[in-house]
Write a protein that binds this DNA or RNA. Sequence first.
DNA 1: ATATAAAATTAGATAAGACTAATTTTGTGT
DNA 2: ACACAAAATTAGTCTTATCTAATTTTATAT
Lengths: 217, 217
Amino acid sequence: MYTLSEENYLKSIYRLSQQPNFKITPTAIAESLKNNPASVVDMIRKLTDKQLIEYDKKKGVKLTPVGLKDAVLIVRRHRLWEVFLLEKLGYHWDEIHDIAEELEHISDASLADRLDKFLGFPEYDPHGDPIPKANGKVPKPYSVTLADLKTGDTCRVAAVKDTSSSFLQYLQKLDIGIGTNIKLLEKIPYDNSLVISISGKESTTVSQKFGENILVD
Amino acid sequence: MYTLSEENYLKSIYRLSQQPNFKITPTAIAESLKNNPASVVDMIRKLTDKQLIEYDKKKGVKLTPVGLKDAVLIVRRHRLWEVFLLEKLGYHWDEIHDIAEELEHISDASLADRLDKFLGFPEYDPHGDPIPKANGKVPKPYSVTLADLKTGDTCRVAAVKDTSSSFLQYLQKLDIGIGTNIKLLEKIPYDNSLVISISGKESTTVSQKFGENILVD
DNA sequence: ATATAAAATTAGATAAGACTAATTTTGTGT
DNA sequence: ACACAAAATTAGTCTTATCTAATTTTATAT
């Protein structure tokens, strides 16, 4: 069907397209895939020929309906495998992304659907990203962050935006995971630092940047 | 670590090495991988340089201790994934091989061991092949076939030798799976056809070739 | 022992996908 | 509008792994 590279480009373009008002340029794709813009230009030509994307110098790269459908399926596989690795094999949050990156390319017509069923049709992956359904529909992503709360508000961690391992390890150190209850005690006006109580325990101060990367219910 | 191709060659050489008194030639490898002997010669050079195999024109190809260790790990991954696909995702016998062929290449230090634990440390895969342990030890394969039994003997299907989908589909049609009880009612002297009773049901006649591909306890 | 067949090997080509270096196009600030 | 920087593109190279065709080596049968 698709080569490994083609799938990685499709997925990368899909992810970039999630950022509203963002022009998807060869350079942006190169950065996201950590490769050379010259290589990207080659692949843009290839994917355009295959009618998976359209490229307009002014508007940047856009997935065609077919490209979008298949990109979403790759993301679906990635996120389902992440759930599997965390829930069934006991991996930690910060270890699953790279493995799912390989697993997502396994191509079998019914594998994703069987895995989905086996996992109980999860709506979100362990990072809180919505898992596209078999029909291509994507559940609504979370949008409120810890930094949006008002002093005194209580919330439940639903997802994280940043998936870097430094962030995830920091979360682990603070004992924050999906489902953890957090109360916003105070917002420091000077730099918007957040004083929070994690699971009802003693207070901790975190940065604004940190708060903006935690999505809550 | 290894490229996809290198892993496939290692696995193929390991599998061929399981046949006793078999000289592993470039042609044999080419047949098993369905590619060209010229390509095999190239890869033999590459794997020899990496000290994963030794090649002696008289004796054929042999895995070095390092090559053997890693080939066994690939086979371990393959067979563990087969168990997963069958037991957890509900695939049929004849569908799992090709998918496991892809999954076996996922490289993460602890993945196989975690999967092993998740599956309850199975000793044999759904085709009855022994699953190498984490330390590289391989459980004893089954050796008695249905064709070795004497008239009147009863047995339990433990494994199958042939993993072609035509064979596996035939088994399914006959309602034979791992654990099925079979009684040998009669051996036809003319062509060694076997008259058997499957799970105590009415008798069926199968060929000698068929019987030789069913391993029993 | 020698002809013939089979197997192994070499040489050279190809395709995918990446790179570097050079060049062209585009965008921005003054 | 011009200079400069940034981005895009082209040209050419490299690596991996495959192939075909030609050649050499090995094995086999008479």
